[in-house]
Design a protein around this nucleic acid. Structure first.
Lengths: 361, 361
DNA sequence: CGATGTCATGACATCGGTGTCATAACGTGT
DNA sequence: ACACGTTATGACACCGATGTCATGACATCG
């Protein structure tokens, strides 16, 4: 591949002049410029990032670590699209900037993260995203100052900047809405008990109940998913067995997420129950494909994953640029709360053939 | 960030010795090695790829261009998961190799491809994947020798190596199977008439009919998708209106893909038709989420997208390594047929509750 | 006309590793 | 004691681009 020296020699000028033509720095006579450009085109010269990085010590790279690329998209695993939507949001912002995004996938193996970070450091990335598949605490070993980092959909105990969804608020608003529609007995099928998403959604559920003066009944709260990855359909079936056998059964079931809601749909129908006439179902997360293809369409909460990605990317870009211009100015985590919480948005699937909001609940 | 010189000075050795410790080249006394390693850990030294690339002229990078990351996953667009599965396949192979995969997304804008290739060249990628969202011809401007390229799910007229799915064979086998099950009037809803996928699947449909001695009836073949991106539901409705009003209506409808099949399901049900009792439906492509969540589960053809990704990656890796060892040996496209065709696999959704193959057709 | 300023260009050093070659230290056989 | 092989290490150049400084050619002004 042609170098700047090849171009210089062929054009009969010095390498520095070629550099000036490429970058538009110093003054170059029009005739010289054209001659150089002609040679550049003829030789197909493309400057080497490596050499540029060595001189400037700025790589123009941002690293992103995720499991979203390798994760099955088909809903066959507990984790789903959230991280993917986040990656899309990040991607959309970065692609409009002058930086290049390097995506590294863990391929489902968290052990790999160390090696990926190492590779990124070798490439001298200026910033780093870590996107988790579910809202939870993580422990990342990024002892490298000089690499701005943002945790997305997760956080650590070191005060690393992070962007989180408002799981609690979303569940609260969903349940409050159900209450407003007249429901009093509201069941909750929870997700993996280890994750914060589960804990926060449970709290939001409680918030809405107590705000409406409805007594909390722990018989109505059952796990819809166990951490071992046990057969979900069986777990859901068991939970429904319990809930439906209660002396005062619920009028609506809140599933921990849309995938769970889909299983609930199937399981209820198998029992001969009509949805929403006999019992209503609500979801969480916007797995659009699920929510739209179910019949009736599912009421769900759309967590703003794409927006979280966008916000993380804008934030990181800003910090990388600041770091570039004022290299020594650093924020300690006590300077300000280095955490954005992004509020959920409602998504009412009230599309098609006059389907009316509330008619399914 | 610490450099090899910092380490050398702190350890009281020459940079070259540090290099030897890092790479295990020449002999180093055990005591010296340990002293150097201690300093490396203490300073958090990470070698710079940029410097290494400059010296060796090998970046260890492979570039991948796709629209799969930015494309909506939710089935709201004509293109779907094929490219995503391919990317996963490629990713899985590369992550086990010593190369680093850089993924660049077109963000839906084909114009961007030139710029992305340019960026890759600046990074001196050793190989390049281009993954298309549907089987079709493309026109890529990669006039750079020295960068091994593989087109996946597409091809060009320059003989660039490419990996393609056997769309025709898949449709032929699907239709042959329907015939074996007793169907004689088989309708086909085609995709965007511009793509090769559509043309090849149509040919496969014809292959199966003529092999069984069934006369082709063009009344049974209708577009289920128009290239303008018109409202699909309306297009499908119109096609069904036509097909169902025929004097001799079909006993089964082959939808161009699973998404279309989903719309067909909804549209047939709206007409009060029972599936599969009144009329059967088959899909194409394995959008697992759709195929599994439909009731009854959909019979469909799984194109081997993941396998195509795997094969492309292994192929490219091999060629990159060959190019490295024997830099001047090059194949011209006439040397051998630089095209792999990967055959489809059947995927019968016969899971759960004793659903039996064929019972829905 | 000479001093000064601007424009156009080149020489050279530098960034951080590593390949090549030189060299020093040490042991071994005769 | 000397030639010789092996081991351990360093000096130095180089990869490709660019920042710094120098220089030569002109134009402008007093």
């Amino acid at each position: 591949m042609a170098t700047i020296y090849d171009v210089a020699k062929a054009a009969g000028v010095s390498p520095k002049t070629v550099s000036r033509v490429m970058n538009g720095d110093g003054p170059v006579r029009a005739a010289t410029r054209e001659a150089v450009l002609e040679v550049i085109n003829r030789l197909g010269y493309v400057p080497s990032t490596a050499a540029r990085v060595m001189k400037s010590n700025k790589s123009g790279l941002l690293g992103l670590i995720t499991g979203a690329i390798s994760a099955p998209i088909d809903g066959s695993t507990p984790t789903g699209l959230p991280d993917f939507f986040i990656v899309q949001g990040i991607q959309s912002v970065i692609s409009r900037s002058s930086k290049t995004l390097m995506i590294a996938d863990t391929a489902g193996d968290e052990e790999r993260i160390g090696a990926l970070i190492r590779t990124f450091l070798e490439h001298r990335v200026e910033g780093l995203f870590y996107v988790a598949d579910s809202h939870r605490e993580v422990q990342l070993s990024v002892p490298q100052p000089g690499v701005e980092t943002v945790l997305v959909n997760c956080y650590d105990d070191l005060g690393t900047p992070s962007v989180l969804p408002d799981d609690r608020g979303g569940q609260r608003r969903l349940v409050a809405d159900l209450i407003a529609k007249g429901h009093r007995r509201i069941a909750l099928l929870t997700l993996d008990p280890e994750t914060d998403a589960t804990r926060l959604r449970f709290l939001g559920y409680g918030d809405a109940l107590s705000a409406a003066g409805i007594a909390f009944d722990d018989e109505l709260v059952r796990p819809g998913e166990l951490k071992g990855g046990a057969d979900e359909r069986a777990v859901v079936r068991e939970a429904l067995d319990h809930i439906l056998a209660l002396p005062e059964p619920p009028s609506v079931i809140c599933a921990g997420n849309d995938r769970l809601a889909m299983i609930v749909f199937a399981s209820l129908r198998q029992r001969g129950l009509a949805i929403p006439e006999d019992i209503a179902v609500a979801g969480y997360d916007d797995h659009c494909q699920i929510a739209e293809s179910l019949d009736p369409p599912l009421t769900t909460v759309e967590l703003p994953y794409h927006a979280m990605g966008v916000r993380s990317a804008e934030w990181l870009l800003q910090r990388v640029e600041e770091a570039g211009s004022a290299p020594l100015r650093r924020f300690s985590s006590s300077d300000w709360k280095l955490c954005h919480t992004v509020s959920p948005e409602w998504r009412w699937h009230s599309r098609a053939e006059g389907f009316r909001l509330g008619s399914e609940l």
